[in-house]
Amino acid sequence: MVKLRARCLLLGDAAVGKTALSHMFHNDGTLFQKNYSMTAGVELLMKCVNIPETSDSVELYLIDSAGKQTLVEACEKMWGELSMLCLVFDLTSEQSFVNCSYWMERVRAHCQGLHIPGILVGNKSDLTARREVQASVAQEWAQSRGMEYHETSAKEKENCDALLLSLAQTFHSLYQERRSAIQNLSPG
């Protein structure tokens, strides 16, 4: 049995649905609201996810960050040490997808060489008529960076569990990889 703990940052442009997603996890979907105020700071919530077919689990400490450019400086100080990244864009906004590269860069600079595993999330999949980003394009972008890609709707509660599981599994695989590397180390 392994109990892992990961600090996971939800990141992306303002209004892509980060807060809506995090509230989905928090309350198992019961708290979706039509009008959120723009996230002002950072919010932390914890979710424990079991890895299927094992007795292992991952405690995800999700940090919801403000996506408003002006608040980023202030919030970055509160990111702290990150274990993982959950990069979110809005499927109905091409610009929010393009900006994912910018967010990745911010995280890379923040973490000074430490590899941060992550996943890419295209949210608002319910707004099919307004879609601007094709799944294949997002999938390719994610794959080239070693990330899993998921599409969700925080509104329709679509696929949010898959997203959590994907985060947990990503961290779990990294742990297993590192552990076997350590088992093969030569003495100092």
Binding site: L4, R7, S83, F171, R179, I182
Partner: peptide, 20 residues
Amino acid sequence: HPPENIIDGDSRTFWMSTGM
């Protein structure tokens, strides 16, 4: 990989942290 591995005198056994 329990913490006892730290004091068993054997550097092949180890305790491993599990995040953060």
